[in-house]
């Protein structure tokens, strides 16, 4: 499979801020890639460079085999973009908005109507964009990005401001697009989202890609112990500490928490002793990987 995106030694600064600082990455056609990183990590800037919105200070970007800078009109109909800030025509209704974008991409207005249905905005079709809630505007923005059925989609925090229903619906929608062979690149602050949707994720901080791999490989690489919680009254603390494979045990409100690097063995033992009621196993998540890589301090 050929590369949908090839980024080599990409860098750009805003004055003193090195927003993107020597990034290399490759995204295969049909891949679903997530970009994670704290606020100000440079995700939006990286996406804008790859989309061809900004001129890089250094490095090259090729998308679908074509250079993106300067503005490449051959490429534009093949990519779909949702910017982090909703960008709409002022005072148009939802329907007029998507019809306008459909026309810009040479697509029939009926396709726009289909998309309104797909993102659940039919009820709001005649509402002006200024009257949409944050999540509704977000969904319209996504519909406008996808209306021309692009081969490659860039979504900058598409699920920010969405309620849980809308978020799951969007997951289904994006997974469907990806299954039909489209390449999807999104940024997100939701680790569960990245874990569910993405083939690979890139963790960024301070303009650099710290690591890029499948979510599972990243979690394995963290080599963090699992935590098994046993309901209160099932197990005494000293008993717990004595179980084979348990490295440590602590009391908590939910019961006794066992820390182990061999959760399978511990769970098997608990099962044998018939103490599985209310047992919860937590292995390391992408969130742990994220915090491990980027630290816990606030970002500017």
């Amino acid at each position: 499979m050929s590369a949908a995106i090839e980024v080599v030694d990409l860098a750009v600064s805003y004055g003193d801020v090195r927003a993107v600082d020597g990034v290399n990455l490759e995204v295969a056609e049909g891949e679903f890639v997530g970009v994670l990183g704290p606020n100000g990590a440079g995700k939006t800037t990286l996406l804008e460079l790859v989309e061809g919105l900004r001129r890089p200070d250094a490095g090259t970007v090729r998308v679908l085999g074509e250079p993106v800078w300067p503005r490449n009109p051959r490429l534009l109909p093949r990519i779909g973009v949702q910017l982090q800030a909703s960008s709409f025509f002022e005072r148009l209704t939802t329907r007029e908005q998507i019809h306008t974008f459909a026309s810009l991409y040479g697509v029939a207005p009926a396709r726009g109507d289909e998309w309104l249905e797909r993102v659940g905005l039919v009820d709001k079709a005649d509402t002006r964009v200024e009257g949409l809630s944050g999540g509704q505007a977000q969904r319209l923005s996504i519909a406008c990005a996808l209306v021309h059925d692009p081969e490659l989609v860039f979504l900058d925090e598409p699920t920010a401001a969405l309620d849980p229903q809308a978020r799951r619906n969007l997951w289904d929608l994006l997974a469907g697009i990806n299954d039909s062979g489209r390449t999807v690149v999104l940024t997100t602050h939701y680790m569960d989202e990245a874990e569910v949707l993405c083939d690979r994720v890139a963790v960024m901080d301070a303009g650099r890609v710290l690591r890029m791999d499948t979510p599972a490989a990243l979690v394995r690489g963290l080599d963090a112990p699992a935590r098994i919680t046993v309901a209160p009254g099932q197990l005494r603390l000293d008993e717990a500490r004595g179980l084979p494979g348990v490295a440590d045990a602590v009391e908590s409100l939910d019961g006794v928490v066992l820390v182990t690097r061999d959760p399978a063995r511990v769970v098997a033992r608990l099962a044998a002793e018939d103490r599985l009621d209310g047992v919860r196993v937590q292995t390391a998540t992408l969130e742990d990987v994220f915090l491990d890589l980027t630290g816990r301090e606030y970002r500017a």
């Binding site: 989309e51 534009l76 973009v81 910017l83 909703s86 974008f101 810009l104 991409y105």
Partner: peptide, 18 residues
């Protein structure tokens, strides 16, 4: 100014219109 503020200008830059 309005189109620039709402980033619509940027969005249009990425649409296949000259």
């Amino acid at each position: 100014q309005g189109w620039r503020q709402t980033k619509l200008l940027r969005r249009l830059q990425l649409a296949p219109v000259s």
